[in-house]
Amino acid sequence: MSGANIQCRAVRFSRAGMEFTFDFSVDASDIVAVMGPSGSGKSTLLDLIAGFETPQSGAIRIGNADVAQLPPAQRPVSMVFQENNLFGHLDVFSNVALGRSPSLKLDDEDRADVHEAIERVGLAGKDKRLPPALSGGERQRVALARVLVRDRPVLLLDEPFASLGPALRREMVELVQALHAERGMTVLMATHHPDDAERLATRMIYVEEGAVAAQGPAAEFFGEDAPDAFQRYLGSERRG
């Protein structure tokens, strides 16, 4: 499998008095970091692509099919949240297996795939653990294992490593990089951490006040020619 391109065309959405307008596109198999101040619309952007929100108008195309009105399960998308990615009463194996069968009906091949995914994210032997017995980083690894068995062309990461320490965050970024190298899915990651973005992303989207204010190659964003708005944002973040 490989990634799919994403196009948002004149997507309009409003909630609780906030207006959002998104118009941008992402090439297949890119890794894009979505940055911007709190409340600017990063999460809303991901929710629209995942289908947790439905736009009032506009088109969201993934691999050239308009998915704007489809329910979340029918979109070629997996999403990892900041927390609550796992059901606390189900063991690691079942949590991952839900990505293959939402009623946990598995054949031998499915089971093998699930075990392989758990091994791939570095949790071999922890199949029977319950989420409360895992560290924060391990729980997010389980969520990534489920992404592997679901095998969808688009992966959305909504600040998935925000509650982890710097060393763990770097490990997780490297894991996402490795998984991307194997599967080639299109990755959109909302983050507050410029170093995560710089390390992982090939392209950048900067969101401000409910719209994309700047976009371009990551190298440009973190170099001399960074867009002004993004520089201001980084400055304020670093000072704060």
Binding site: A50, G51, P71, P72, L98, P102, S103
Partner: peptide, 16 residues
């Protein structure tokens, strides 16, 4: 709420 979102994303039916 994230669990309800997962339910929607993974296509978990009412019985499951």
């Amino acid at each position: 709420a994230d669990h309800r979102r997962l339910e929607a994303q993974l296509g978990i039916g009412p019985i499951s």
